[in-house]
């Protein structure tokens, strides 16, 4: 890794199947992150907690440098690199740990040789909470691409017995499932945030589901993930209710 920088480290890690997000924590600050902005302000708190666990272990002469915090669906794996910074990874439980471990060891070696350079275009330590508050307008898809559909074939093939609320629930559950599959527990936070905004601003009916997709897409930071979710969600909400009900 000749041109070592934070983004490259994180990009390499999240390119592994099974790692959804990663970040670098040092001196109570998140220096770089691929986590969604909605969770950014929690990351430094999580980093502080994990750092304290490492420090406590070291205080009793234990040289542990890797922590796995097993959650319901995912595992938060943190490596202490060169006693200098923490690499935090959100991973699925079935991940190939040896692959990640060897990559982290390579990063460790490279950082030893080249150091961890300061973030680009910043004179001082960045303030992560500012990143979280900054809501970038989605720029990798066009809002007008989300039509307010008369949902395809609804009048002909939607289960006629369903109430309006039940129909809405079928779509919202599907979108939530999609987020959980892509982002793990973070997906739940993204969904709840967008759902609250949607419930406050739009009529809770099937015709407004496209607005919910729009709000969820806005909550996703990564350009690629934003695009991927939008495409998947757009296909999903075009499906007739009868098809969704059978999934």
């Amino acid at each position: 890794m000749s041109k070592l920088d934070r983004e490259k480290i994180l990009d390499e890690l999240v390119s592994f199947e099974g790692i959804s997000h990663s970040c670098i924590y040092q001196n109570e600050q998140i220096l770089a992150s691929t986590f969604p902005s909605i969770i950014q302000d929690k990351l430094s708190g999580m980093g502080r907690f994990i750092d304290k666990i490492f420090s406590s272990a070291h205080a009793i002469d234990q040289a542990h440098d890797e922590i796995h915090i097993e959650l319901e669906e995912n595992t938060l794996i943190t490596y202490r690199v060169n006693d200098d910074f923490l690499l935090m990874l959100m991973a699925t439980k079935g991940i190939n740990l040896s692959l990640v471990y060897m990559t982290v060891k390579a990063i460790e070696k490279s950082v030893k040789l080249h150091g961890l350079p300061p973030p680009k275009n910043t004179a001082s330590i960045p303030v992560p909470t500012e990143v979280s508050k900054e809501k970038k307008a989605p720029n990798d898809y066009r809002k007008e691409d989300i039509p307010v559909w008369p949902l395809k074939g609804e009048s002909e093939d939607a289960p006629s017995k369903l109430t309006s609320e039940q129909k809405v629930e079928l779509y919202t559950n599907g979108l939530k499932k999609m987020l959980l599959e892509s982002f793990g527990p973070v997906g739940d936070i993204i969904f709840e945030e967008a759902l609250q905004r949607w419930q406050a601003s739009y009529p809770l009916e099937v015709e407004s589901i496209a607005k919910l997709v729009d709000l969820i897409t806005q909550e996703i930071d990564s350009k690629n993930e934003k695009r991927s979710f939008f495409n998947k969600a757009a296909r999903f909400i075009r499906k007739p209710l009868s098809e969704i009900g059978n999934e």
């Binding site: 929690k42 708190g45 999580m46 907690f49 304290k52 666990i53 272990a57 234990q62 040289a63 542990h64 440098d65 890797e66 922590i67 796995h68 915090i69 097993e70 959650l71 319901e72 669906e73 995912n74 938060l76 527990p185 973070v186 739940d188 936070i189």
Partner: peptide
Amino acid sequence: YAPLFEKTAELGAIRSIILTSNKNNN
């Protein structure tokens, strides 16, 4: 420490915490 971390992270319940090392027992 686990419940405090859960409160901070809001990522759901912690099932286990494992520390590994090349020098000490895990």
